[in-house]
Amino acid sequence: MGFGTQAATQLAATLKIATDTANDLGVSVGKSAQALLDAHAVTLGSGAIALHSEEGVPLQSLGTGSTRLLVAGLQRVAAEVASIVLVDEVEHGLEPHRLTRLLTSLGAKEAKPPSQVFMTTHSPVAG
């Protein structure tokens, strides 16, 4: 049994959260993200496992905007445990429509946001 098959079983809940969050935010990972070995890891350690799309493309190769959007979405999922978010240059790497999606993911339009967010920006869209 290969590593990816074993990881899919052991990390099923985590992979589902990552997949659902990515798909909700429009970040393409396919039907199910995978945990595979990172071929660029020189030594086998804790950093040798990386999330990949359904097609086997490492999510770390996503563009800056997609990465930031996915991280913000995952932060929202983790908000029950870590309720403070720091974001520097929130607009960096994001088109205005994706920036709006990121801000919504952080709870900008909610009466009771899931976390307290401190951010810097030069963007009139984020302001």
Rank of each mutant, 00 (worst) to 15 (best):
Q60R: 15
Q116K: 08
A33W: 00
K112N: 13
N23P: 06
L103S: 03
G107P: 07
A79L: 07
H52S: 10
G107T: 09
P96R: 08
L70K: 07
R101D: 02
L69H: 04
A39R: 13
L25P: 02
L51F: 07
T67K: 04
S105D: 03
A33N: 02
E110V: 04
L69T: 06
V85P: 01
L99K: 01
A35R: 00
I49T: 07
A22C: 14
L94C: 06
R68E: 03
P114R: 09
R68K: 13
G107Y: 10
V71D: 05
G47A: 13
P96W: 07
A35P: 00
Q116D: 08
R101A: 05
A41D: 02
A78N: 08
L102Y: 04
L51Q: 00
A78S: 11
P58F: 08
V29P: 00
E80D: 15
I49R: 05
S46P: 13
L69D: 03
Q60M: 12
L62G: 01
A50T: 08
S61D: 10
T43V: 10
L25V: 11
A41L: 01
S61T: 15
V29R: 00
L59N: 01
V90E: 01
E55N: 12
V77E: 15
L74T: 11
Q60N: 14
A39E: 13
L44W: 06
S83E: 14
D24G: 09
L102E: 04
G45I: 01
G107I: 10
S83K: 13
